[in-house]
């Protein structure tokens, strides 16, 4: 495994291994694309030959047509933009609160003893159950969506941060202290990078849940957004637009988590969890 010659140049084996890795990655993306395409192909086939009634589930081609029309007239982008803005704001609030609470309860045992039972009791309540009280508090505006996204995303962020801080290596902290680390250096050069392998995946999961929550909120308590699009299309019997909205939600969610995973792999390249 080591480059025993001590030269910085890569050995032939290492080059071969890298080539192999790249090939594998290509193959894996390829396999992913093949999986997705087959899914749509089978769906298309089942609707074309009439196994599935087009009234109950339109074909992918019809859905793509509906998406195209909405993209051209601009309504898709307006709804998508509204949903993205809401999830961004709610998620940001969840990160601020979740990370802050996770930090203090991970650092001070006493705080955790008070805080954790409260959080563990609030956590199992699904965001859907919060909707009546959310409407009571915030009405039918953007604030209701922010709040529901916040509720969905804050718990995984908190748990991840708490776990990361509790798992910090005592010796690494001591090493930093005896080397004379200033508080800012302790935070930015030790605490933050040491926590990221646990905090970033937690944030990715939180964003996924937030994305589901925003759609839920928009089904009931909004006048724009992908959830609203689905709900309104249902009332107008535009089944193609309903499924087009669903497909958009799925694809955007997939893209978000793929981008975050790529960032994780870069930032946490050193961590055992990212090496296979």
């Amino acid at each position: 495994m080591q480059n025993s010659a001590g030269s910085p140049a890569l050995s032939p084996q290492a080059v071969a291994r890298q080539g192999g890795m790249a090939q594998l990655f290509k193959n894996r993306s390829l396999r992913g694309a093949v999986g997705l395409l087959s899914f749509f192909a089978i769906w298309q086939l089942l609707t074309s030959i009439g196994v599935i009634d087009a009234f109950l589930l339109p074909s992918p081609v019809a859905v793509a047509g509906a998406m195209w029309d909405m993209a051209v007239d601009g309504s898709l982008w307006i709804h998508l933009g509204a949903s993205l803005r809401r999830v961004a704001i709610g998620f940001l609030l969840a990160c601020i609160v979740g990370i802050a609470l996770g930090l203090v309860s991970g650092w001070w045992r006493g705080v955790a003893d008070f805080l954790r039972p409260v959080i563990e009791a609030l956590r199992p309540i699904p965001p859907l159950a919060w909707i009546p009280i959310t409407i009571l508090w915030f009405g039918l505006g953007d604030s209701a969506s922010y709040f529901l996204v916040f509720l969905g995303a804050v718990f995984p962020t908190y748990v991840a941060t708490y776990t990361a801080v509790r798992g910090l290596d005592r010796n690494q902290m001591n090493a930093a202290l005896c080397l004379g680390a200033k508080p800012w250096q302790l935070i930015w050069d030790v605490l933050v990078p040491a926590s990221l392998p646990i905090v970033l995946p937690g944030m990715r999961i939180a964003l996924g849940i937030g994305w589901m929550c925003v759609v839920t909120a928009e089904l009931i308590a909004a006048q724009t957004g992908l959830g609203y699009l689905i709900q309104q299309s249902r009332m107008l019997f535009q089944i193609n637009n309903v499924v087009a909205g669903m497909v958009t939600i799925g694809l955007v969610g997939f893209a978000m988590s793929a981008v975050l995973e790529m960032i994780e792999r870069r930032v946490n390249a050193w961590a055992p969890s990212e090496r296979s």
């Binding site: 010796n171 690494q172 990078p193």
Partner: peptide, 15 residues
């Protein structure tokens, strides 16, 4: 920093 420590588990910063 006038008394630095070398640990059994190295305690290097992995990042």
């Amino acid at each position: 920093p006038s008394r630095t420590v070398v640990f059994q588990d190295y305690a290097l910063f992995g990042w």
